[in-house]
Write a protein that binds this DNA or RNA. Structure first.
Lengths: 189, 189
DNA sequence: CGCGACGTTGATTTGCCTCAACGATTGTGG
DNA sequence: CCACAATCGTTGAGGCAAATCAACGTCGCG
């Protein structure tokens, strides 16, 4: 049951048996049904969630009622409203499930305690945050320097499986275009 | 001389005298003249740079020769091509000076050693990366949900001093619009 | 089976870009 | 300290990528 998340930790740090026991003791397992919310904008993001199965989406709901997707979190990814979690303030983003999903969660205080008891996790989450930063930075420059068509082609090449698993309108939202325009791009080829 | 960077460390971690001595011993002080490059795309980013004075810009030079600014680094900010530095691979971004600038640098291996000798720095750079992630995420959703005019208004409100210190064309590039269009927005008011 | 969400298509509109020309400002060598 | 060049910001005409709006087929789910 815990293999996926332990394998994720092992990508960046090596835990001995005692350390493994500590982290397992604070993990909370949770199931989220398709369309149910894990976090609602306005609430405080009290946990960081590792997706063991399924798919979450992190998105902003703007004043016009339009959804703007920040990112998807599939198996082996982490989902969180970073700003809300780290400063324990109300969230801007909403997180909900695109499929029936299972996550492991670590609460805010539990994570702070974990940093004390197993300092290696400072390293783990440092690397995680750095990788996240790189991905976000790429997305910004991609949006600045590429057309919608180029971005869609790159997305398909980078995530060939996701194109089949996620609704078109969500891909459009992620790419920053309308579903209609994405439909037209697809027709062109 | 070292106060600015020590104050920056102190925002997130408390260093004793021995630890302070260690980090000071690996810092390299460097001056960059206006318009000179600190990092060129294609080279490997071998150091992380803390800006003590002046201003750097991190930008992508695309195939058409257009510049797309990822971010500015003023006093008390860090400048780096994250992907290049952390994996020691060729950089996508170029970093150059918009003003005569002074930085403190930490080399890649020195930083890895520092993590070993003073593990608190794992925590410091974890928090730094998290904050960077939040800023990038905000920028993406801002671009997805707001018009150029709204983004410009927010930029002015958020960085009132910068508007006077940076050339308009650089602000335009940062906002993801042309200098001509920014000029038109300014006229409207 | 029937309803609601989804993807598609086409007509029209618009936010922003491109190109070109022209003042204003800044910087630099004489 | 001036003269001149280079860079920068502005303005306007015209164009295009992508949005909006509306209508319609279809598919999956309850």
């Amino acid at each position: 049951m815990f293999e996926p998340i332990l394998a994720n930790f092992a990508k960046h740090i090596a835990l001995d048996q005692a350390e493994t026991a500590i982290v397992l003791s604070i993990l909370k397992h949770r199931k989220i049904k398709k369309k149910d919310a894990l976090l609602r904008a306005g609430d405080v993001c009290r946990s960081i969630s590792f997706v063991a199965k399924g798919c979450l989406r992190v998105y902003l709901l703007d004043a016009q009622g339009d959804e703007h997707i920040s990112h998807f979190a599939f198996e082996d990814w982490w989902a969180i409203d970073t700003a809300s979690f780290y400063s324990q303030t109300p969230a801007f983003y909403t997180i909900d499930a695109l499929e029936d999903t299972e996550v492991f969660q670590i609460g805010y205080q539990d994570l702070e305690d974990l940093y004390e008891r197993v300092p290696k996790f400072e390293r783990f989450f440092r690397i995680l945050a750095q990788n996240g930063y790189v991905i976000q930075q790429r997305r910004i420059t991609s949006r600045l320097s590429e057309s919608a068509e180029e971005r869609y082609e790159k997305f398909k090449k980078l995530h060939p499986k996701l194109s089949r698993r996620i609704a078109q309108k969500h891909i459009a939202s992620f790419l920053g275009i309308t579903p209609e325009f994405l439909s037209m791009l697809r027709k062109k080829k």
